[in-house]
Nucleic acid binder design. Structure first.
Length: 154
DNA sequence: GCCAACGTTGGC
DNA sequence: GCCAACGTTGGC
């Protein structure tokens, strides 16, 4: 199993929103690296740290799980959507996504500040300057340590 | 609101 | 194929 970190702006979609749905399509991602992670590299059952970006404070707030196979992001075909992609056709879609389901919420948020101040977790991609990917691969040991630090037991 | 980082676009 | 301009992300 692989591990991930997925970023979401809580004003748009928070961990509490995820807890209230069966699963959520991760639509609107328009970065090729992010797309390739969702398209080719994720597997059903993979676990992800759910990270609140553009938040006060930013940080990891819980765990989500990859559900099912990748499929074309429907918003790319919708001319009215802000994520519309004129060059995409249903036969040849450009953007792919996965569904995610809620697994758990941390008893307390694991802030970016806490991640950065940890001697091991400071190596995580999310801690690096200029890291802008909304989906990051996470080392399994980092994932385990983050969960432990957040007081979360699987 | 600022700005650093960095991806994308488009003229040439 | 280069590179300047521009847009976006996201911490602060």
């Amino acid at each position: 199993m692989q591990h991930w970190l997925i970023k979401s702006e809580p004003d748009v979609f928070s961990i509490d929103d995820l807890a209230q749905v069966t699963s959520e399509p991760w639509s609107g991602v328009r970065n090729y690296q992010d797309r390739n992670f969702m398209w080719k590299e994720m597997k059903p059952g993979d676990l992800a740290l759910f990270y609140h970006s553009n938040a006060k404070p930013p940080g990891a707030v819980g765990i989500a799980r990859v559900v099912g196979a990748p499929y074309a992001d429907p918003t790319q075909f919708d001319p009215k959507s802000e994520y519309h992609e004129p060059k995409s056709t249903p036969e040849n879609p450009r953007w792919w996504l996965r569904d995610f389901e809620f697994v758990g919420k941390f008893p307390e948020m694991l802030t970016l500040e806490a991640l950065k101040s940890d001697s091991v977790l400071c190596e995580m991609m999310v801690c690096q300057r200029g890291s802008r990917l909304s989906i990051n691969p996470v080392d399994p040991l980092h994932f385990k340590r983050a969960c432990k630090l957040a007081g979360w037991k699987p």
